[in-house]
Computed example of a mutant assay.
Amino acid sequence: MSDDQRFGLARHVILKGPLKLDGGGVLAPVEIAYETYGTLNADTSNAILICHALTGDHHVASAHPRTGKPGWWTRMVGAGRPIDPARHFVICANVLGSCMGSSGPATIRTETGAPYAMSFPVITLRDMVRAQAMLLDHLGVATLEAAVGGSMGGMQVLEWAASFPDRVRAAVVIASAARHSAQNIAFHEVGRQAIMADPNWRGGDYYGRGDPPSAGLAVARMAAHITYLSEAGLHDKFGRKLQDRGEKGFGFDADFQVESYLRHQGISFVDRFDANSYLYITRAMDYFDLAEEHGGLLANAFKGTRTRFCLVSFDTDWLYPTGESRAIVHALNAAGAAASFVELSSPFGHDAFLLDVPQLFGVVDGFIRAGAR
């Protein structure tokens, strides 16, 4: 196996389209940035699609080109991992609307020679999945051995199973939900308003000016990041400890370690993400409601499916709590689908799917291997 096959091959493709969108418009052409690992076998039966979360990207197991940090899921994808390029042809595509090479608000519009900005069409998760299906057609992959994802990635996996049931033999849905709750929408709206209230946002027309709405985007990231953690985890890591000082400053600098931590998360985020993309992707997540797409009954989304499902939740995840996964399992049972479910214990909250939780890797490894027998 070559180094490219082992560590990932970064690619970019421009597909003619058109891609019909749920909002009524069309997108053409469709640009998709993606990475592959491993080799597609002769009968094209070993492909696994990794779907990334809100602020993720296609660099699932290779270094991020801007930050230099390792891929975001090297615990799951790699030699000796549950998803191993020695056995699987692994694909991870940057989602539609993002800022890492796929079509989004920062993409140059052919007709104008300028970025789309806020003229980019509002998209849905189903639109994202349709774009991924176009990519798989381009790659010659008719059927996936599995689609795997956590958080928004899990939502895409559910959409894959509902929209393209004959193309997905197995679906792994981790720390996710079948629709966005009012609380989820509320947190996203706080972030969007922070961005749009930044004077540098300029109605989304800030590209090329050298002063993007960094302050607003940082605040949006800070608010969202709180939802990814657990109260117990925050207490254990920070408590009420002060930041580099022996006593309170009686001002509005970062007195507490947790304040400094959140500010760092916000500042580092603006170096790798686009504010308009954040608006578009959070809106796509808010619109997601798989039951609504199928007559108001979630079980209808999986009617007659032959896909095998594995669902995993975490006991400290309050963003997408275990009840959300159980609702999906109940719908799968009602539809007669093959489904397994486990709630894992972790102090990490929602972010547990990205962190070192050995039980998770054992569950995913066993589920994927069982399908290959």
Score class of each variant (00 low, 15 high):
Q5D: 08
R6I: 15
G17P: 07
A28M: 02
V30F: 02
I32P: 02
Y34G: 01
Y34V: 06
T36V: 13
T44E: 03
S45D: 05
N46R: 01
A47T: 04
A47V: 06
L49Q: 05
L49I: 02
L54G: 00
T55E: 02
T55M: 04
H59G: 07
V60C: 12
H64E: 10
P65Q: 13
R66G: 03
G68H: 08
G68C: 12
K69M: 14
P70H: 09
G71L: 04
W72G: 06
T74A: 05
A79Q: 13
I83F: 07
A86R: 13
A86M: 06
V90D: 04
C99M: 01
C99R: 02
S102A: 02
S102L: 00
G104C: 04
P105Y: 00
P115R: 01
M118S: 02
P121V: 03
V129C: 04
V129H: 02
R130F: 04
A133T: 12
G140D: 07
T143V: 15
L144N: 04
L144R: 05
A146F: 07
A146Q: 07
G150I: 11
G153F: 11
M155I: 14
Q156K: 14
V157Y: 07
E159T: 15
W160Q: 10
A161S: 15
D166V: 10
V168G: 05
R169P: 05
S176I: 12
H180W: 05
S181T: 14
I185P: 03
A186H: 06
A186I: 07
E189M: 13
E189F: 07
I195M: 08
D198N: 09
D198W: 05
P199W: 04
P199K: 07
P199Y: 01
G203V: 10
G208F: 08
G208T: 11
G208C: 10
G210W: 05
A218D: 02
A218G: 03
A220G: 05
A220S: 13
M222G: 05
M222Y: 00
H225G: 03
G233Q: 03
L234F: 01
D236E: 11
K237E: 12
K237H: 09
D244K: 13
R245D: 01
G246D: 09
G246E: 07
G246T: 10
K248H: 12
D253W: 11
D255T: 12
F256E: 11
F256W: 14
Q257W: 00
S260A: 14
Y261R: 09
Y261F: 15
L262S: 08
R263H: 12
G266R: 02
I267R: 10
I267W: 00
D274I: 09
A275N: 06
S277G: 14
S277T: 06
I281A: 00
T282D: 00
T282P: 03
D286T: 07
H294W: 11
L298D: 08
A301C: 11
K303R: 15
K303W: 00
G304I: 10
T307L: 11
D315G: 12
D317M: 11
L319R: 12
Y320R: 08
G323F: 03
S325G: 15
A327E: 12
A334P: 06
A334F: 03
F341E: 09
P347R: 11
F348L: 14
D351S: 15
F353P: 10
V357R: 06
F361W: 14
V363T: 11
V363Q: 11
V364W: 02
D365V: 06
F367D: 08
A370M: 12
G371C: 08
